[in-house]
């Protein structure tokens, strides 16, 4: 389905990206040199060239038109990771301005699992790392986080996808539920994600190909279910199908 472009700040994002990309190069050198002893065992060594980063095997994509703004994904995210329901601690941010006209009312911010992750590149301690054992998902090892907020600054997107935990003074980010202590399903890039299984609208999905690095058409994609077959509309002569359809709802 073709989509009209949404008002967005992609142009601005692109600009930021290239500016910070340049800054990131210095960070990589720093991380690889002075602080390499902090690197997590499973983390890939920071490569000399950004394109040498191992690619994540899974990416969270969304449909901002299909989303109903119920924030269930956000609450599920913080429940399974932090054990409490919070919008501020959620690693997916769904921002809804209810008085703005559809489809511009909802913006969804997910971690892109960037091919060239600046949060990883710039982290001075290796807390932000690529988890080789878990599908190369970009993760934060909170035990190594010193709360310097470099990853928050480094994220090229608005709002930044890395999340600040004020009580712990540490940063965290989407790990595709690799480490979700309160999730009763196997998570991670090859498993399930709390936000995806909780979304009642089917507006979230995990794909395994690297999306085009844009919002529209890249991460913000059409996930709307196909329209029901004509019979379900109750056209003359159509037989009722299935048991899910019920009598007219009282309003």
């Amino acid at each position: 389905m073709a989509r009209a472009p949404k008002a967005g700040n992609e142009k601005e994002q692109g600009k930021k990206y290239s500016r910070r990309h340049f800054v990131a190069g210095g960070g990589v050198v720093l991380a690889g040199g002075a602080l390499s002893s902090y690197a997590a065992p499973t983390a890939a060594a920071a490569p000399a060239k950004a394109s040498d980063y191992p690619q994540s095997t899974a990416y969270l994509v969304y449909d901002s038109r299909q989303c109903a703004g119920c924030q269930s994904c956000m609450l599920a995210c913080s429940l399974v990771h932090e054990g409490e329901a919070s919008l501020s601690l959620s690693r997916i941010q769904v921002t809804r301005s209810v008085l703005t006209r559809y489809p511009y009312d909802i913006q969804i911010a997910v971690c892109r699992q960037c091919p060239e992750p600046l949060c990883v590149a710039n982290c001075p301690t290796g807390a932000c790392h690529i988890d080789i054992a878990n599908g190369n998902v970009r993760r934060t090892d909170e035990s190594r986080c010193i709360g310097c907020q470099t990853c928050l600054e480094s994220c090229p997107f608005t709002p930044h996808r890395t999340v600040w935990k004020p009580d712990a003074s540490k940063a965290t980010k989407c790990d595709l539920c690799t480490d979700a202590p309160y999730f009763s399903k196997p998570g991670g890039p090859s498993g399930q994600q709390a936000c995806v299984v909780t979304c009642p609208m089917g507006a979230l999905k995990v794909v395994h190909e690297l999306p085009s690095q844009t919002d529209i058409g890249g991460y913000d994609v059409n996930l709307a279910p196909p329209p029901p077959p004509p019979g379900q509309f109750g056209f003359p002569g159509a037989k009722p199908k299935g048991s899910a359809k019920s009598a007219p709802e009282k309003l």
Binding site: A76, S78, L79, V80, E82, G83, E84, A85, S86, L87, S88, L89, P166, Y182, F183, S184, A194, T198
Partner: peptide
Amino acid sequence: GTGSVKVADARAVR
């Protein structure tokens, strides 16, 4: 509000 709602059993809630 920037805080959280504490629950007894986050896993059970989800």
